[in-house]
């Protein structure tokens, strides 16, 4: 396949603590993410998921290895460059939505774009488009406190997509949602990914959420243990993920 590589991770290592007493959290990770990918990373607590996500999203720096984001090595970029990369190339979805409660949903969605200096007209047009896609059209004028958890998270997703990033990092996006809202969100994310808006890297505990991805990587003890790829059927994929979980020693989502 001749797809554009968005992220290339090579031999990524991260250890915490001082010399002699350090703990290795990531022990050499290699991963390639292409423009059309929708990847879920699963793993028990302490497996290094959050560390990996933090490094990818430029919040943390690795001890060793490189991360190329759209061809640029983010482990060697200056703070100013990192800020620009975060702004232009990456979109974030957090577990607890992180919408600003002082603004309407529309203002929240538009914020990253408007801060980039994009003209108001374009902002509104893009926001309308995304809101239609995520089923939020009637809610744009509402404040976060007037929205349900699912609506908020879909709003947060719109905000992540509005800058047309290369990749979206989603950290347990369904963690705070009921199953119906979670499903709605995942459907939307999937649709957005299918339409080629951005690659998605999602960290999750939940096998159901993971089954919406195209590939699932299982991270354990700082290493990628295995990779599962979706066939044509999501339910069958889900079963495979659950089987894998149990074969690896219990349902780590409960850890």
């Amino acid at each position: 396949m001749n797809e554009k590589k968005v992220v290339e991770i090579k031999n990524l290592m991260k250890s915490y603590g001082t010399k002699g007493f350090s703990t290795k959290v990531l022990k050499g990770i290699d991963l390639e993410i292409c423009r059309n990918d929708f990847i879920a990373i699963m793993g028990p607590s302490g497996s290094g998921k959050t560390t990996l996500l933090n490094i990818l999203s430029t919040i943390d720096k690795p001890t060793q290895g490189t991360v190329l984001l759209d061809g640029k090595d983010i482990t060697r970029a200056s703070n100013k460059e990192l800020s620009k990369i975060r702004r232009d190339k990456i979109g974030f979805i957090f577990q607890d939505y992180n919408l600003l409660d002082t603004m309407t949903l529309q203002d929240n969605i538009v914020l990253p774009l408007s801060l980039n200096g994009v003209p108001g007209k374009t902002c509104i047009k893009k926001a309308d488009e995304l809101c239609a896609m995520f089923g939020l059209k009637e809610h744009v004028k509402k404040y976060p406190y007037q929205l349900s958890g699912g609506q908020k998270q879909r709003g947060a997703a719109c905000r992540a997509f509005i800058t047309d990033p290369e990749i979206i990092f989603a950290d347990e996006p369904t963690g705070a949602l009921d199953s119906k809202s979670g499903k709605d969100l995942l459907e939307c994310l999937k649709a957005a990914n299918d339409s080629g808006r951005a690659a998605i890297l999602m960290v999750t505990h939940d096998a159901f959420s993971a089954s919406y991805a195209k590939d699932v990587y299982i991270l354990s003890d700082g290493q990628m243990q295995c990779r599962l790829s979706k066939g044509s059927d999501r339910k069958e994929f889900y079963n495979r993920i659950v089987d894998m979980q149990s074969s690896m020693g219990g349902d780590f989502s409960c850890v």
């Binding site: 002082t102 203002d107 914020l111 408007s114 801060l115 994009v118 003209p119 108001g120 902002c123 509104i124």
Partner: peptide
């Protein structure tokens, strides 16, 4: 003013104007 989105969506204004109202 904040209701006029074309006016509001101008760089930092989106942020601080909403903050001022709050």
């Amino acid at each position: 003013l904040a209701r006029r989105k074309l006016f509001l969506y101008k760089k930092e204004r989106t942020l601080w104007m909403n903050q001022v109202i709050f």
